[in-house]
Amino acid sequence: MYRVSSEVRFRRVSEEGVVIHQRQGEVLVLNDVAMRIVELAGPGVSVDEVVERLAAEYEVEPAELEADVRGFIRELLDAGVLEPQPDGD
């Protein structure tokens, strides 16, 4: 499970999103799916649940969607936008 870093503020703009990473002094632009992952990330939300929610929103093969979501999550973790959520949170 992952959550949005406390250093991050974000805003959806139409079908994209803008993410400000304050500590790194970076402003990122995310596509629609990456932005939905950020919007859905939160306490108690698993990767499987994110995939399930997105499967209901996008017409795409489940296996392809899951691979995309896991890839996006890796990139968002690398960028410091998401962070692992400690057990018990």
Binding site: V13, E16, G17, V18, I20, V27, V29
Partner: peptide, 11 residues
């Protein structure tokens, strides 16, 4: 795009 414009202005 709107999001890139917003990102540019924030910066």
């Amino acid at each position: 795009s709107g999001s890139l414009a917003l990102a540019r202005l924030v910066a």
